[in-house]
Design a protein around this nucleic acid. Structure first.
Length: 354
DNA sequence: AAGACGTGGAT
DNA sequence: TATCCAAGTCT
């Protein structure tokens, strides 16, 4: 079993070679990036961050907006704000060394019950009970847990702890996560390849896919709004969103609020300045976690000299990529013809497709 | 306690 | 096209 487990081990950039101790900073950074995010999406960001900020004190010294720019496109931007605050705290309060206890880790911004346990187990080999989405699924199937994971989290943790007390908590947690990611998958699990199939109640019933039980989902409302793309010479008008809430602290084109009953015909009055605003054909469509957005895009051009507008700034339209726009705003830029749809992202290497 | 909070890929 | 899903946290 151990040999097999080693063979099936995923080789990931934040993992230390077998037998070696991983860098706590890299473990922490990867765990923050992987929250609700696929491995494939996190990889290029992880590489870019580690290369640019090789240790926690370097990241702590970086201006917040630089960290936000580097995070742009990954989503859940509160993670980036908390990440930066956490780096500052570790650099000062802990002199650059991450605390090793689950309790202290849990107090760091952006570090919840899962991440605290994961860092304690993986980086410090502490006997923490690590329960992520993969492990919830594995345990829910093993015991045919009848409640959705969110309600059953404590019970799932207890069931997991009752299984065994692993010698190497970090390897145990990561092994279970790999099992969930590659065998005990959400859809079409490979029970025939699972070493625990014989002990699995869901598999015994032949209904592995029925677990974990799904919570009823709330429908996504539709919201509307408008964005304003203003050009002056080779510059375009940008601003920074408020530090909390949707896309908090991220760069954007001026926008209206996003509302269900938004009236596009009244949008021009909300523009950053009076101009000959032209409504572009077609909306920008974007799906957030909790609502769909149809964004109308207005464009206008003003003649130099470049007007100074409080709370706004002008940036070269040529290299908007360096502004670190969230995906919604990239779509606006594409729609307005400022950048091409295949234009290289900060970390991706996707080529122009047309 | 339950909603807010992004994005891209797979089905 | 619609829905689901991916190493959750904060309020």
């Amino acid at each position: 079993m151990r040999a097999k487990a080693r063979r099936n081990r995923r080789d990931l950039p934040w993992r230390a070679p077998p037998g070696e101790t991983p860098d706590p900073y890299a473990v922490w950074l990867s765990e923050i990036m992987l929250q609700q995010t696929t491995v494939a999406a996190a990889k290029p960001y992880f590489a870019a961050f580690l290369s640019r900020w090789p240790h926690v004190e370097a990241l702590a010294k970086a201006p917040l907006d630089e960290a936000m720019k580097a995070w742009a496109g990954l989503g859940y931007y509160a993670r980036a704000r908390n990440m930066h605050a956490c780096a500052g705290l570790v650099a000062t309060k802990y002199r650059g060394r991450f605390p090793t206890s689950e309790l202290e880790l849990r107090e760091l911004p952006g570090v919840g019950p899962y991440t605290a346990a994961a860092i304690a187990a993986i980086a410090f080999n502490r006997p923490a009970i690590v329960v992520d989405g993969n492990i919830q699924r594995v345990v829910a199937r093993l015991f045919a847990v009848s409640e959705p994971p969110r309600q059953a989290r404590t019970r799932i943790a207890e069931l997991l702890a009752s299984l065994l007390s692993p010698e190497r908590p970090g390897d145990f947690a990561q092994g279970l996560m790999d099992l969930g990611a590659g065998v005990c998958t959400a859809r079409a699990p490979s029970c025939g390849a699972c070493p625990f199939a014989g002990a699995c109640e869901a598999a015994r019933r032949g209904e592995a896919e029925a677990f974990p039980v799904k919570a009823p989902r709330t429908p996504k409302p539709n919201r509307k709004g408008a964005a304003f793309v203003l050009r002056c010479a080779e510059l375009t008008l940008l601003r920074t969103r408020p530090p909390r809430g949707l896309l908090g602290a991220m760069t954007e084109f001026p926008t209206t609020p996003f509302e269900e009953d938004f009236d596009v015909s009244k949008a021009r009055a909300m523009a950053p300045l009076p101009a000959k605003w032209r409504l572009l054909d077609g909306d920008v469509e974007h799906v957030f976690t909790h609502f769909r957005l149809e964004l109308a895009v207005f464009i206008a051009r003003v003649a130099p000299p470049v007007p100074r507008i409080e709370n706004y700034r002008w940036a070269p339209a040529r290299d908007l990529d360096r502004e670190g726009l969230p995906t919604l705003m990239r779509k606006v830029a594409v729609h307005a013809g400022l950048i091409r749809s295949g234009s290289a992202r900060k970390h991706g290497n996707d080529m122009e497709s047309g």
